[in-house]
Design a protein around this nucleic acid. Structure first.
Length: 516
RNA sequence: GCGGGAGUAGCUCAGUGGUAGAGCUUCAGCCUUCCAAGCUGAAUGUCGCGGGUUCGAUCCCCGUCUCCCGCUCCA
């Protein structure tokens, strides 16, 4: 029976609480902290680095080692710029943005503003009988009614015309709305290209020819290596290639801690399969593989401890699909900031391979020995964010419990993800024999897994410190240990203790840590 | 980029025109035979940065940077 009563869960958890815990306990720091930070960057501290590595490992293990149809890959961040022309990122990753010069100051995607014939209106002050045009009070609207509406909503407030009589006059001229804000009729600035890819230069001379991009997704490194991996590993379709690595996007607004950052880590698989229309009876179509991957990926999050009610699948509507995909299932997690995407599983069809064939002139089709025929495989892409996953795992594990009259903060992380696996304490630090025994035990355990030794506080505080970073086991060497050569192992979640012979501690922990 | 808010100790925050404080944390010692105990002591900040007003500014003014919230983005 647990002595603890759970009083807080993710429902009333705020992101600030997580941010504060992360900084305090060495999990995540703001990037370039001493220089005031850099927007959209965060550094992982000693504990965070372990946690992230464990997440990467868990993903790699589940997808590369435990399956027999996936190969690993580690491609470069810098790639031949042609790659990004082929992938479509040079064109479609550029958002043309323009701003309204009207009072709303809204920003628009220029390509999303629909065009329509509109008329210019002018506001005239008629209070003193003599109509006087009001400076700056011109706007564009499809009808006089709409112009009035704009005037009420925005211009009235910004022109300070209290107590004055104003008339709306149509003036000569007509134009397309794409030049004027649909929200306040204000003029729009010229669209400026905002490319979401970050650039740098290779070679000693900074000139446009040497400009390269930092990859905005890891996927393309996989596509360009499709044939290399397939032939060197003697793979038959269906098979997949997995990769973990950094990607970069010049986000307009990085926000929400590590949720949206300019430098982030992806865990992606490109799974190559036979296009549905070529499949024979009993063979999985691309759509069936897509379903398989959605389920497989959902299960991965469950396996590592995400609560069922905090995870959901959302199928993207046709109009939100990226240019390359035929269908996309988003796995969303209920963060303190609301439901947000953790991972997208897209059916990219043969778009990427075909584009690379076109741009590189190389044949990337696959020869199917059973069909005795060549085809370009379809691709199912489960694309997860490592940083987002980490945030989700931490949020989901974050628990506040009432212990006696005190509260206990504990990260109930899955054992495989826990940064520190075991902590060893002497019950009394002024007893050199206990200190020595504890130090020796810790030293021994370190050979197997990440173990820490600590004696800088009373036992209760030592436990709580480890609870906050999710250490599953704490071992205490007490006075009796000197006699019976045994120690207590305390479980993080139940806070219960078992007494184990010193010589059996390692085996016990190894067995416990292995349990699912 | 636009609009709004904010920058004071590791964290959370208070405060004053006379160059700073609390709680928690951290560290050392004493004590303590198991869940943030107690006692003693200690550390830490050019009060985001630059300029101005002033005899004097953390506080007032201007500028600037960064962060947070909304618009846009989506792993």
């Amino acid at each position: 029976m647990s002595a603890a009563e759970k009083v807080q869960r993710a429902d009333n958890l705020t992101l600030d609480t997580i941010v504060s815990l992360c900084k305090r306990r060495g999990i995540i720091f703001p990037g370039s902290d001493i220089y005031g930070g850099l927007g959209g960057t965060f550094d992982y501290g000693p504990i965070g680095a372990e946690l992230k590595r464990n997440i990467r490992d868990a993903w790699w293990r589940a997808n590369v080692y435990e399956r027999d149809d996936i190969e690993g890959l580690d491609a470069t961040i810098l790639m031949n710029p042609r790659t990004w022309e082929a992938s479509g990122h040079v064109d479609t990753f550029t958002d043309p943005l323009c701003d309204s010069l009207g009072p709303s100051k809204k920003r628009y995607r220029a390509d999303q503003l629909f065009e329509e014939e509109i008329t210019a209106y002018e506001f005239v002050d008629v209070t003193d009988g003599e109509p006087t045009p009001i400076v700056g009070a011109k706007l564009w609207a499809p009808t006089k009614k709409k112009a009035k509406e704009f005037y009420k909503q925005y211009w009235e407030k910004h022109l300070n015309l209290e107590g004055r009589r104003v008339k709306i006059e149509e003036i000569a001229g007509s134009a397309k709305t794409a030049k004027y804000s649909p929200d306040d009729g204000g003029e729009l600035t010229e669209p400026r290209a905002f490319n979401l890819m970050l650039t740098t230069h290779v070679g000693p001379v900074v000139e446009s020819a040497a400009q390269v991009y930092l990859r905005p997704e890891t996927a393309q490194g996989i596509f360009v290596n499709f044939s290399n991996v397939q032939s060197s590993m003697r793979r038959k379709v269906p098979f997949g290639i997995a990769q973990i690595g950094k990607s970069f996007r010049n986000e307009i607004t990085p926000r929400n801690f590590i949720f949206r950052t300019r430098e982030f880590e992806q865990m992606e698989i490109e799974f190559f399969c036979k296009p549905g229309h070529l499949c024979k009876e009993g063979e999985w179509t691309d759509e069936q593989w897509h379903e398989h991957w959605v389920e497989s990926r959902m299960n991965w999050y469950y396996r590592y401890g995400i609560a069922k009610e905090n995870l959901r699948l959302r199928n993207q509507a046709a109009d939100e699909l990226a240019h390359y995909s035929k269908a996309c299932g988003d796995i969303e997690y209920l963060f303190p900031i609301g439901w947000q995407e953790l991972e997208g599983i897209a059916n990219r069809t043969d778009y990427d391979l075909k584009r690379h064939m076109e741009f590189s002139g190389k044949d990337l089709s696959y020869f199917d020995p059973e069909m005795n025929e060549r085809y370009v495989p379809y691709v199912i892409e489960p694309s997860a964010g490592a940083d987002r996953s980490l945030l989700a795992f931490v949020c989901d594990a974050y628990t506040v419990e009432k212990v006696r009259d005190d509260k206990r903060v504990v990260l109930k992380l899955h054992k495989d993800l826990a940064p520190v696996k075991c902590a060893v304490f002497p019950l009394l630090k002024n007893r050199p024999e206990l200190v020595e025994m504890a130090r020796n035990l810790a030293r021994d355990l370190k050979k197997e897994f990440y173990t820490v030794y600590d004696d800088t506080a009373a036992i209760g505080k030592l436990y709580r410190r480890q609870d906050e970073i999710g250490t599953p086991y704490c071992i205490t060497v007490d006075v009796d240990s000197l006699e019976d050569q045994a120690v207590t192992i305390r479980d993080r979640d139940s806070m219960e203790q078992v007494r184990i012979g010193l010589d059996k501690v390692k085996d016990y922990l190894l067995a416990e840590l292995k349990k699912e």
